[in-house]
Nucleic acid binder design. Structure first.
Lengths: 330, 330
DNA sequence: ATACTGTTTGTAATCGATTACTTTTCACGT
DNA sequence: ACGTGAAAAGTAATCGATTACAAACAGTAT
């Protein structure tokens, strides 16, 4: 395996010059640069990253800690982060915290050990509550989950407003008893809850909510109970893709077709939402954009550590489908 | 930030002793060990990974290169790999090749640069065709995709047999004109094609196949064409989850309900397969097990570089649902 | 020709661990 | 008390780059 001194010898220059050329530093003559590049080619030289990282104290690596890799939302975010990162010659270490605050803390420690340049994190509720940027030796950009109090770069959906619009849509369609099943373990769920509550209140309607862990099974169980209540709610809303999936499963088990027996709506425009029944009305998130924006924010923060904190709020898009076809229309 | 020499001073021993304790080497007195451990606690010492990796020439990192992170199959595999790896104090670098052989090559180079301990790879067809273990300075375990010729550790589904069983199931249900739409860009698709062809031949039936890139859109387009043909095929099979999704979309567009107008079956038991229509008959893959097995294989290979090559074949499970309800039953 | 500037180049220190090698310590048999 | 071998501990070389600093050089003004 060729080392930098081999390249230096081959090119007839010093190791410092080789290093400078490879780092793209100025102050190297064009002739020297060419000879170094040629030597690198000839020897197929690849710098040893461990050595470089040790000396330079930089890793050019960003850590991505997602809450649940099985959630397609985070899959797509990861994809975007990865694309952007590698395009900027950065590495990505992906960690899946599985909605477990302990795992999250573990991975944040790991990021410290790895001396990453920065971290993109979708924090669980406890982590978010305790979150202080100054607790970490690297910049952190929050993604998907952030509240008004937290002072950190972040990229989030306009959760409150999106939930408001989704709820308002159901109300417009003539539904009144609208139940909201939401993941209480994430800031996202809570904010969407807020939007729902506001919309209901604005229209003088009573709320009907159920907080659950953000899993398919929990949502199915909760919806199963609701389905046994009489009078039946007129509509069901889920606070994210996994929960929505649970709702669909529960309605199927309870043999309640939508929208005939009960209307349905939720968050996340997953591939299957338009295929079940006559399609499910959802708020679509610009997932790829979210990941992209988060990476951009992080890269900028790494370049300019003291620039002011920024928050990017992206708008969710309402996609009306059969599941919320109005009572009037029937 | 505390360094090893600080720990040594605090503990009143030499750096060598500290290093030995932390590496779990024998030849350290119990007293010394205790003092070192205490000092580590006091100073909150964390070894510098860059320095360690430079000197020891080991990274304890495994690279995972998946074909398409959006495919839930690979998501689940990643999860398993990650779990297993961290449990064995290994890091994971996840890369998404997006079914692009060039990206794949790029990432394999990157793995070399990172000096990873080993790689788990789901190769594209061109990469698999050229694949030689000796081309890489690290052990490689293939996952999901591997052919009989390739001499490497691998974990795969019994693709041929599973496809045979799925096809045979449709035949048993009374279908004859069974079309198979498959991803020709992966070894998996080809092997499943083989199983389908064998099953059809065994029953004296004519094959009806369409090779497509393994994407939802390509599959939808292909199925859209088939849906316009007369006579209509009696059943449609897709070679993986993404393709199956494309088929469902196409049938919906063509307003062909299943199984009434046309039967449907495929691979990958994704969350939504039991929710659309009366459920879709699929071969379920033990995705988590596949990732787990691959990681185990890799860790063993790292520990014993010269042990003989092993291939783990896992069995797919047929899950019968409404989409393949027999003609006889109608 | 000389001094002065700015650019290019080279030498050697450095990053923080691991580990080869040497020295010390200790238990034990004679 | 002493020699012996094993176990424990320490010293210093080492991994392979980056970079601080010094030296050489070229170009220009005096």
């Amino acid at each position: 395996m060729a080392q930098i001194k081999d390249v230096a010898r081959e090119a007839g220059v010093s190791v410092a010059t080789v290093s400078r050329v490879l780092a793209g530093h100025s102050g190297v003559s064009e002739t020297a640069r060419q000879r170094v590049l040629a030597a690198v080619q000839v020897l197929d030289y690849r710098p040893d990253l461990a050595a470089r990282r040790l000396r330079s104290r930089r890793t050019d690596t960003i850590g991505l800690i997602v809450s649940d890799i099985r959630n397609p939302f985070f899959t797509e975010v990861s994809r975007a982060v990865e694309d952007m990162a590698y395009r900027n010659r950065m590495r990505v270490i992906l960690c899946n915290a599985d909605e477990d605050p302990e795992k999250e803390a573990l991975y944040l420690d790991l990021m410290r050990d790895e001396n990453v340049s920065g971290v993109i994190l979708s924090p669980s509720l406890p982590t978010l509550a305790r979150f202080r940027l100054s607790d970490y030796p690297f910049p952190v950009v929050l993604v998907d989950r952030c509240d008004r109090e937290t002072h950190a770069d972040a990229v989030v959906l306009d959760n409150v407003d999106s939930a408001y619009r989704l709820t308002a849509h159901l109300i417009e369609q003539g539904y009144r008893r609208i139940a909201f099943i939401y993941g209480a373990t994430s800031a996202t769920g809570r904010q969407r809850h807020e939007g729902y509550v506001t919309a209901m209140a604005t229209h003088g309607l009573e709320t009907l909510t159920q907080a659950v862990p953000a899993t398919v099974d929990a949502a199915r169980a909760a919806a199963g109970e609701l389905a046994r209540e009489r009078p039946l709610p007129e509509a069901l809303m889920g606070s994210n893709g996994l929960i929505l999936l649970g709702l669909v499963e529960a309605l199927r088990e309870a043999q309640l077709p939508f929208p005939e027996q009960i209307a349905l709506a939720g968050f996340d425009d997953l591939p299957w939402t338009r295929l079940v029944g006559s399609g499910i009305t959802v708020i679509a998130q610009p997932t790829y954009d979210i990941g992209q924006a988060a990476t951009e924010l992080l890269l900028q923060r790494i370049a300019h550590p003291s620039q002011s904190v920024r928050r990017v709020v992206l708008r969710g898009e309402l996609r009306e489908r059969g599941s919320s076809t109005g009572r009037s229309a029937k």
